[in-house]
């Protein structure tokens, strides 16, 4: 089974993304939203080799260019991701 991990805390002030990356499986992906989008500035995320999505409105609001290793999704894309992956684990 595959898991979509959703992270909305900034990785620069909070440990959620680090914990998430530790337990992220090979078939899993991470959706960054809210301040979690700041992780696009975190090269460590890319080097992990995990699939990364970002909620478009959050990268746009923060003026964060989306690197080629991440994909941007809108809300209908978010809904589709939650279906494509077997479960959604939001790091509340």
């Amino acid at each position: 089974m595959s898991t979509l991990h959703v992270v909305s805390h900034s990785p620069f002030t909070d440990g959620r993304l680090a914990s998430c990356l530790r337990v992220c499986g090979a078939k899993d992906a991470i959706l960054l939203c809210g301040d979690g989008a700041y992780a696009l500035h975190n090269p460590a995320l890319h080097s992990q080799g995990v699939k990364v999505f970002v909620l478009a409105e959050d990268s746009q609001a923060r003026n964060l260019p989306v690197p080629d290793w991440a994909s941007s999704v809108d809300y209908s894309g978010f809904v589709q991701l939650s279906i494509d992956y077997d479960k959604v684990n939001t790091w509340l």
Partner: peptide, 8 residues
Amino acid sequence: RLICFGGP
């Protein structure tokens, strides 16, 4: 699907 939202 169970989808949770919370935090910032």
